[in-house]
Design a protein around this nucleic acid. Sequence first.
DNA 1: CGAATACTTAGGTATTGACCTAAATGACTT
DNA 2: AAGTCATTTAGGTCAATACCTAAGTATTCG
Lengths: 114, 114
Amino acid sequence: MPNQTPSIEATFGALSDPTRLAVVAALCNGPSTVSDLAAPFDMALPSFTQHLGVLENAGLIVSRRQGRARVCELNPGALRAAEDRLAAYRLEWEARLDRFETHLAKMQKETRDD
Amino acid sequence: MPNQTPSIEATFGALSDPTRLAVVAALCNGPSTVSDLAAPFDMALPSFTQHLGVLENAGLIVSRRQGRARVCELNPGALRAAEDRLAAYRLEWEARLDRFETHLAKMQKETRDD
DNA sequence: CGAATACTTAGGTATTGACCTAAATGACTT
DNA sequence: AAGTCATTTAGGTCAATACCTAAGTATTCG
């Protein structure tokens, strides 16, 4: 069996390599076989399929056998999950900044009122 | 000198570790010193500061010396950059799906019209 | 069936990454 | 100036990752 719902760390880890990032970009244009995906890279095939394994374990791609080839496809759900996670951090930080600024404004007002 | 504008791979790599992800989460609540950040982790300090170094090289945090302590702070710009990159992939994929569905619909219509 | 195609499996090397301890620095405190 | 606190530097271990070559399996084609 492939894996459970992959951790967000695994997703980010999968995206932390230029080869794998390029594969994700390529798959934006639609599903593709392993060898078509591998063609642009100056890398032995077993090394390349290892990268595909990382992407698949991270849930970023799915694949199915089709005859003697294997077709890979992007899973936009995983992209969205990573995106949402980052947005949550950023929003939390921005909310804190807002609170801080409100607090500062109140302090200044109180100082004026003394 | 610290570094140039960090690559998106470096950013994702920095986010691919549970310790570092927890640091990012902690820094959402505001700036903090190295030892305050380190306190929750069962890890020697030099190991922990190595993680901070990875986050800083990736542009996810910035730090300044303050007396004998070092204060770290989140850089939401880097979060946003990573978020935008993921969104771009996802949107490209979704646009492709739309085109594909439009194409399918047209094919069906033409078949009916034969 | 035999040859070609599309991958996968097996197994090895070299670099990187995550941790550690011990010792050094730099900055306040008394 | 001596002591303490916050962090860094130095240097070493162990496991994981990124690659490789060679050989195997599965599928299609002639």
